[in-house]
């Protein structure tokens, strides 16, 4: 069964674009990353799945149930909003207990374990919490009832690196026990390190969806030349950065052509490396043209759609 499935899901806020014809499938048991720059539509997608906003058109199902039945499937979901905001006058312990009561469950043991691992002080008032500690409270509220599906909207922002590690440890434990993890992020390394599959969304549209290793495997090379400050126009280079007498760029064409071109330049040194995933995606965010990623994604997104 698919934990999440959307069919041509579209959401507009008046005339403002939210998401357009989004087709997303997350299978049960997956650790799924949802990547995109700010304003791409990640939160809109998540908020639609949670029933906070109504889709303009299209349909979606969560844990096999349509959006209309959200009151029942929300029981099996642990959600962490990107801006974790709670009732200021409550103490952290009261907040966590309130969340459990709203689920008609006694989660006190699990909550205590989570607070202990995350080093969260339950005696503090919510209004005294830093962003990081508010995030921790959100993690406890999202995890204490052992849900089947975790929907996490940029969960790591505000957490220090040690807590991020502990957090992903917790998620991996839950994932091994069969839970599905769906989290949005614009930190690509955390997607690369933790996810089995990922989808990229840009300008409200699904740009690619594949296994993470496929998304990052491309025939693109990162080339750095020393001794020159400009590249010949004939060379098909992308993401060109020049600093002093050094130029680096991404190259996707024939390697022999590259060598021929470079052979005519007065270079002192040259390195050819695999690009970082970050660089591939960064290029992807910035330019409207077809990048290495969507070629790899088997033409899920045509160039025509891209340019719109």
């Amino acid at each position: 069964m698919n934990a999440i499935e959307t069919k041509n899901l579209t959401k507009n806020y008046g005339k403002v674009r939210g998401i357009t014809d989004l087709n997303l499938t997350v299978e049960e048991g997956e650790f799924f990353g949802f990547i995109g720059p700010n304003g791409a539509g990640k939160s809109t997608t998540i908020r639609t799945l949670l029933g906070l906003i109504q889709p303009t058109s299209g349909s979606a199902s969560v844990l096999g149930q349509p959006l209309q039945k959200k009151a029942s499937y929300l029981a099996d979901i642990g959600y962490m909003p990107s801006e974790a905001m709670f009732y200021n006058e409550m103490k952290v312990g009261e907040l966590i207990a309130f969340s459990a009561k709203m689920r008609k469950q006694d989660c006190s043991k699990e909550a205590a374990m989570l607070c202990d691992r995350l080093k969260l002080d339950t005696g503090k008032r919510v209004e005294e919490l830093s962003l990081g500690n508010r995030k921790k409270a959100a993690i406890v509220c999202a995890m204490q009832h052992n849900p089947r599906l975790y929907i996490l909207d940029e969960p790591t922002s505000g957490l220090d690196p040690l807590m991020q590690k502990e957090f992903f440890e917790l998620l991996k434990e839950r994932n091994r026990k069969g839970a599905t993890i769906f989290f949005s992020s614009h930190v690509l390394s955390e997607v690369q390190h933790n996810c089995t599959r990922a989808a990229i969304v840009r300008d409200g549209r699904l740009a690619a969806m594949d296994r993470v290793e496929n998304l990052s495997r491309t025939n693109t090379k990162k080339v750095t030349l020393h001794g020159v400050s400009q590249l010949p126009v004939s060379l098909e280079a992308r993401s060109v950065t020049a600093a002093g007498d050094m130029v680096s760029f991404l190259y996707q064409g024939e390697i022999r052509t590259l060598l021929d071109e470079v052979g005519r330049l007065p270079i002192r040194d040259m390195t050819i490396t695999e690009p970082e995933l970050e660089e591939i995606f960064l290029h992807y965010y910035e330019e409207a043209g077809s990048g290495p990623v969507d070629q790899k994604a088997g033409g899920r997104c045509s160039r025509k759609q891209e340019v719109r």
């Binding site: 009151a71 929300l74 974790a84 200021n88």
Partner: peptide, 17 residues
């Protein structure tokens, strides 16, 4: 106003309730 609607409404209760 206090941005708590998201937290509240993602619990398994209907809006009506």
């Amino acid at each position: 106003k206090e941005h708590t609607a998201e937290f509240l409404m993602t619990h398994p209760v209907s809006r009506f309730c």
